[in-house]
Amino acid sequence: MGLQTLLCGDGPLASDLADRLTETGSDVSVVEPSGLLDRAEAAARVDAAVAGLGGLDLLVHVLSAPPTPTDLVDLDTDDWAAAAEAPMAVGLHLLQVARPHLANGSRVVHVLPTSAMGGAPGFAATATAAEGLRALNKSAARQWGPAGITTAVVAVAPELALGLLAATEGAALADAALGGPGGAGQLADLLEVLASPGAAFTTGSTIVADGGTWMAP
């Protein structure tokens, strides 16, 4: 589709998604979340990335998670800060420094696990960050809508976002209606739809793309 895409993320899903978007004709520049913890550094990195792209149609933030589940009572403060607080700081800085590059028709998408909405035992910190980012997405929608900048959240299966089946234990009342959680290919297709003019009247919405597991509300 040829979207000038800036993708923030560092896990396997982010990497696969960048590859799939590139395969379908988009120009994709990836920024590591660790480089956005400081706002000034975030601005420098994002400015450089967008300059390389020549514009910004699609801004995607893919939330990654720690590699193993840990109950909250066993989590140390540094791990909590890295998994819960840092992603929110990164998310805020990303939107702040990307805003000058977003124009009428640009789309902002957060890719988050559905555990933002349902909680995640063993991944409480990641779920905490995810729901915070979901609210940030909605706030951006409300502020930037008059400028024609729209947003969406794509909520994916926890095993896709977190990379572990353990994350889904007890979370879902049913198996995925479509047989599985999908992957980067389905996600890339959906992002292209969301970035198209046909989806331009949705903003701040959460689109669940998990193969039909989470069906609330």
Binding site: L72, A84, G119, A124
Partner: peptide
């Protein structure tokens, strides 16, 4: 974010 923490802890 506090809501997701509460849900996770409830589980």
């Amino acid at each position: 974010s506090q809501r997701a923490l509460a849900k996770s802890l409830s589980r």
